[in-house]
Design a binder for these strands. Structure first.
Lengths: 223, 223, 223, 223
DNA sequence: TATGAATGAGGTTTCATTCAT
DNA sequence: AATGAATGAAACCTCATTCAT
């Protein structure tokens, strides 16, 4: 899956990177508040700290901004996630931690994930495809973890249910953002983590009934 | 929760109803295909079978169209749902059937639900509020069913998990539409129903281990 | 050679005709004064007597304006030309009058012809092609007249020179407009007519040396 | 007629000359292909082999590029023309050769002449004036030749027709470029030369009926 | 002298909404 | 009650030009 090439009139790759980071940051905030369609390119430029002309030195069209946002958010999610997962854990504890970390990252990057989630459908053609593929690749990560547990005989779950379970995990993460108007009134992220994972694990039919996932203890680092 | 009043220059209430039904039908198709922002009022008028001038005799603004759509879809979902639920069932079988019926209705009204789901965020103020309240009222329906089962001692689930479980059911329905690009490639609606319900029920920790929900047998009635 | 279809959002064909006439009239004046590229669509709208929005109800793009101009000008040229030619004349007198009438029409529609002549190259694809074809069809008209004289043994001119002579006549007409900055200082239209035709006829090697074309006596009928 | 001064930030006159030659060469190609208005200064800079910043070290505005082009083309046309004219010829043969050489040069510098011809109207004020004067000076060259022949009693042509004949010669040259879409399909440059000159000469009413201009034998030198 | 990132005025086009018929 | 032509604010995007390095 190749990245879509976003055209730039500027040659300095380093500068492109910096400026695009500014753009993405500004766009996330604006798209969150006013939606992609409700945000003008001028606003993005201004919020990015430069003129409309300069904005268009780094993108080819408004849609490119959305694409840059989605691309950056996915990368950031995956990156933070991988940093959070303890490589030493194995078995159910690992599975537990993988899911928990995912929820944490989503909580951490709430605005970003929400934007990506709600606006990505405005992308077209190649860009949309790329984003959907990335989405899919995340599902596959969960699939690997679950299959690993199945192989070790730790959980029992029908083959045909595996994929569905992964969708459920993924969507449980998104839910935390797109239903935050109600769900974050009812739960904090720790409770949400514990309860969702508890329900998921019961769905997995864990054989070792002594397994007790440690309660979450999230020290949300910064942001 | 009072309905938002959509202004009309026409007196005849009967006519208003008819025309708005035409509008909603046309809008659902268009919003699905091109999104709310990608659809023009002209297109809605044309697809509705009348002129742009006439359209504005029955609505006050473009947003009203979206509101009418959301309102109508919720009503239709609830109505079809209630018609599908067998009033004679009780206990786990009833819970099972309530969820199953919900999934069926969502499948039946796929385009409508997807539009409502993806575009309702474009609503503002009063209208948005109304739609969110309606959404909430659906969650409450599930809650009632679950509490009823708990009271009867049929399922065990922590008080704090109840609400979350209901969100999960609701979102599992939406998922069928907003992830249809991938999930409907992997499952048909029957399999999706059975597997999602199986996972949910395991999450409910059903005491009566002999309970075996009948496999779905959906005879999709028209549409 | 089919006309290019210029899109309009308005249904009333009569109105389309009227409005487009207004547009063409305004555009000719503006394009003459400031050139096609130097004229904004806003200016065209304003000079046409309506808003920019209304302008775009009658055209699809700025280029359409230029196309409408070229199309209208050609039609008007041909129409006026045909009206001017005396159907009763024959032989050299007819040829003489055909050319003279052409020059007169060009003089009469000076601004229009100049615009068409100088700006048509800004057209693209289908539209450009159509205009070039129309141009060609005018050359063919002269060709017919000349061949008719040749057949009657009135003039002697090599076969291979015929087409060239027609180009020369056509361009002699255009010249009157695109070199008007100098040529109209030196000659008035009557003198220009007479002298150009004299030179052309000498080029035709007329056999009947008694032929004396009557001096021009142009009573320019308004405009 | 003084040249318009094109400002430059660079002192070294030698360098200015070199760079401007690069600019003109690049601009001719671009203006031909995309027109003056359709070409950006960036493109000119790039095609010239340097940056946009450098371009503006050697010109004051985009219009200056067009002016430089027109100026250079006229100079080149005149220079090549003079080189081609055989100083030893006299009388009708000289006149013939002067015209023939002019056509040859136009053919040789087709792209350049076309650009100058089609785009010079975009010049303004002083620059436009200068170009028109240069144009005029070419007409005067022909005039001198013709008057010389008249004085020698070689051709008969009314005083008032002289100027017109010169315009016709000049335009016959331009025609070869601006009608090339059709005329170069019908004739090659040799035939065009011969036939146009034949027609012109007949228009001149040559007295010495034994004069037979040698058929063209153009050995197109390079390009 | 050369570079190229930055600027912002201004261009074309769209579209929700109005109102005379 | 129905029509659809008219409106104009505002959107996206371009590009000639400048200036710090």
């Amino acid at each position: 899956m190749k990245k879509k090439k976003v055209p730039s009139l500027v040659k300095d790759e380093r500068l492109i990177k910096t400026r695009r980071e500014q753009i993405v940051k500004a766009a996330v905030e604006l798209f969150n508040r006013k939606g992609y369609h409700g945000t003008t390119t001028r606003e993005v430029a201004q919020a990015s700290g430069f003129s409309i002309g300069t904005l268009y030195e780094y993108i080819g069209s408004k849609e490119d901004i959305l694409y840059l946002v989605c691309d950056a958010v996915y990368d950031e999610v995956v990156e933070k996630w991988e940093r959070l997962v303890d490589k030493n854990l194995v078995g159910l504890e690992r599975l537990h931690q993988v899911i928990q970390s995912y929820f944490r990252v989503v909580d951490d990057l709430q605005d970003e994930v929400l934007v990506m989630y709600q606006e990505s459908k405005a992308l077209s053609g190649e860009a949309l495809n790329y984003v959907l593929q990335k989405e899919l690749s995340m599902k596959v990560m969960f699939e690997k973890e679950i299959r690993s547990c199945i192989e070790k005989g730790l959980i029992t779950i029908d083959e045909e249910e595996i994929s569905l379970a992964c969708h459920n995990i993924l969507v449980a993460g998104h839910m935390w953002t797109f239903r935050r108007w109600i769900i974050q009134k009812e739960y904090d992220i720790e409770a949400y983590c514990d309860l969702q994972i508890a329900q998921l694990f019961r769905g997995f039919q864990i054989k070792d009934h002594s397994f007790q996932p440690a309660r979450s203890n999230i020290n949300s680092e910064g942001r």
